[in-house]
Write a protein that binds this DNA or RNA. Structure first.
Lengths: 338, 338
DNA sequence: CTGTTAGCGCTTTCAA
DNA sequence: TTGAAAGCGCTAACAG
């Protein structure tokens, strides 16, 4: 089966290849007469344009690279979906690249995407230090990056407003009537989960409540960490009716301990987490938490990227805080007084 | 920043572009002398080959198209991951295409992938009738397809052996000592879930047990369907100690009903499902079920596709039954006699 | 209003 | 052992 090219169409329609191209792209006046001859030929021969040739000629591919740790992780899957969807709307293909947490593989993909002349790259890097993408950016490749600092690179970054997350969760508990709200927090105050504690404090203060270090035990960012912190909290003797957990894993650890210690959740103690991990919606009780709008974030990232690709934005690095939202499930209920 | 091409390298190294190409691809003898001059020039100028130009010249792109309903559905996500991984190993990019269950969008992607000259397409179509890919195949595009009949198309198909699924699940229950094993099945015996019933019967017969229509109620392929069927089962008065549910949704419906009726699972009644849906592992008790090896299936699909792409296979349509595996969790335990 | 033609950057045949 | 040169299929000056 011989491959049909624009040349065959030109011949069949008895026009120049230029005219065929113009008909195809509808970017120059072509008389109805010729236009219909061309279209007929196209239909008859079943012609399909070759985008590779066009890409070479135009030096753009309408393809985006998406580098993520693992598309089978539902978290990244959501973002990927947002990217794919926004890409499709804009007429772009997206090339799926899982780094599997390996820097080496990430680098291999960066190279591959560059070779393939993708128009832009969306990046969820497996490393904190992102200097390895400097050459990319220097060559003028539009890049957007999730969850990382741009440093001195001219890339747009998308982050979550951790302060706001802590604030939204805590405010929810306050609005439910809770006054003694504990906070289970990570060892460090500087990591993402740690930054949420600031929002917790702010929400309390805004509502005339004070925060009390005795109600703010620390633990690892894990289920066990949440469990240990909760044990500490209980043994402190300080009364409380609700807990804000700075991430969902710790929230689940807290629920487990409370249960073993004879408390009911949410009847005795309400809990709000943060992150909306997969387990959150399946847990019993389903966890009220603060979720990131992942799919939307993916779409917005594409918009930013396209602005750079299309030259609609030519400034320096931009930082976007991604939308988050309180997801109300069953682990927090109104405080009934005592 | 001017773009560096093979020509610049040739000039700098004072050799022909041909020689540069040969060094790059290592496919012709080049004297060490020239080779090192070329490599130096490449390093100095920071040259990166342009795959688009190469693709045009070679009329192949080392790119695979992956059309699936939705990459954020964990089931497809797993398959996608297998595809991406096998693709990466083989030096192929994969273009992610979600049809979102819309035929229109699926068709748009088919067109897009063809235009982009992908070397092959992996397909999980949103429709049962797949005649719309006929033109694709006729043009010689290698295609593999999941869960669909090839009909008269020359495409490789990947399916699950439903009979085997029912067999494995039931045999597990038999091996646990259960003798009175009910089966919750769908309305129709011809859909995938229905075909599993044959395996159920076979496993029973193979072990000298007989199947009894009174123990085989039907319901919709949904949680409610499983619930209703279980109610019917209980009201039949026939004794049983285990249930094989022809899909996980029905299994969960069954568990819910058994609980409300005062039975414990698995202490009183053991249950095995099929599919390994997401909920299966998070459910309480975690569901023992028959799972498809999704990631592996994705990888194998790529292998088949590559065989066609590389011309290592030139025959007609091939049909592959995908591996499945019994996943033992907590919903089925040994029968303790009575 | 339409056609001619020079490339895009690379591979690969052919010739030396 | 190397180089010259003809395209791959298309776009977009430029010319008429």
């Amino acid at each position: 089966m011989k491959k049909i090219t624009i040349k065959d169409i030109a011949q069949k329609a008895d026009v120049s290849v230029a005219t065929v191209s113009y008909v195809l792209n509808n970017n120059r006046y072509v008389s109805p007469e010729l236009k219909s001859r061309v279209n007929e030929a196209i239909a008859e021969l079943g012609y399909m344009p070759n985008a590779v040739a066009r890409n070479l000629r135009q030096s753009r591919t309408r393809t985006l690279g998406l580098i993520i740790p693992d598309n089978s992780n539902p978290f990244y899957a959501e973002i990927a979906k947002g990217v794919e969807d926004a890409g499709f709307e804009a007429g772009y293909s997206v090339s799926l690249c899982n780094s599997n947490g390996m820097l080496e593989r990430e680098l291999a993909y960066v190279e591959m995407l560059q070779a393939n002349q993708v128009d832009g790259i969306i990046f969820i890097s497996t490393t904190t230090e992102i200097q390895h993408i400097q050459p990319l950016v220097n060559r003028g490749m539009p890049v957007v990056m999730f969850y990382r600092d741009a440093g001195d690179l001219n890339v747009d970054t998308f982050k979550i407003d951790n302060h706001l997350a802590g604030y939204l969760a805590t405010r929810h508990l306050v609005e439910l009537g809770h006054q003694r709200i504990a906070c289970i927090r990570p060892i460090s105050d500087t990591n993402p989960s740690g930054q949420r504690v600031g929002g917790y404090k702010a929400a309390l203060e805004e509502n005339g409540l004070t925060w009390n270090p005795a109600l703010m035990p620390r633990g690892d960012n894990l289920i066990v960490g949440g469990a240990n912190a909760t044990l500490e909290l209980l043994s402190s003797g300080e009364p409380f009716t609700a807990i804000y957990a700075s991430n969902d894993a710790m929230a689940i650890g807290a629920i487990r301990v409370l249960r073993t210690q004879g408390f009911r959740v949410p009847e005795d103690i309400s809990i709000v987490g943060t992150d909306d991990i997969l387990l959150a919606s399946y847990y019993e009780p389903a966890l009220t938490t603060v979720a990131q709008l992942k799919q939307e974030a993916g779409s917005i990232a594409v918009q930013s990227l396209l602005e750079r690709i299309d030259g609609r934005y030519e400034g320096g690095a931009r930082e976007t805080m991604m939308d988050i939202r309180l997801v109300i499930r069953q682990s927090a209920i109104p405080y009934e007084g005592s």
